[in-house]
Design a protein around this nucleic acid. Sequence first.
DNA 1: CGCCAGGCCGTGT
DNA 2: ACACGGCATGGC
Length: 234
Amino acid sequence: MKPAAPAQRLRRMHDQLAAAYGPQHWWPAKTPIEVVIGAYLTQNTAWKSVERSIANLHRAGALSVAGLRAISLDELRRLIQPSGFYTRKAPALKAFIALLDAEFSGSLRRMAAAPTPQLRQRLLALPGVGPETADAILLYALGHPVPVTDEYLRRIAHRHALLTPNSKTIPYESLTDLTRQAFAADPISTHAQLFNEFHALTVAVGKAHCGRTARCENCPLAHDLKTALHLPIH
DNA sequence: CGCCAGGCCGTGT
DNA sequence: ACACGGCATGGC
């Protein structure tokens, strides 16, 4: 079965960004629980602000499962204040710990051992966890081979006309399906690393060149994609 | 100063 | 199934 053209374009996008930016070494965190925390905190929030909250948590000894379990909701809310939406994010993080304790003995390793589809459903059932947060946790904290996509990829794909039709509002699941197809020819054992790198590269180029207000000058994708695919820019 | 950031959720069509 | 507003802060 032959991959659709959009998937091939996403694959080319990955290759060209990999050549331009090199390995991204994502997720920027030291431990799996730190990945989980960052995934919640970065929702519609600048990563710089997330770093402040992470630093607060670290100082308070709360940058761990046991630490998060121990502190009060009020305390947690105060510590993550810099990254905003704390009235939602604080209870959401507590709910994650509650799930971890109730079903996985408080162990992220045991959680990681659960089958991907069931685990994804359990995560999506949590408050404050939508598809992107669930997939980020699955991939970057738990090592499951699932693609992570976001508004950056949607925007990049639209501006470079990678999709057919060139939808500006392609659903999340459609975008992840295309990403899966983009790497379908690669060995299964390499998918986690490829999905890891693809999303990291997407964010890198997105931050630098593909904000909400178009600023696509010097985008490493512009020249290459235009010449290789004969596509219009924007 | 105004716009924006690595979404999610409830509500209304 | 989508569209839209609210959620909150800090950086640039």
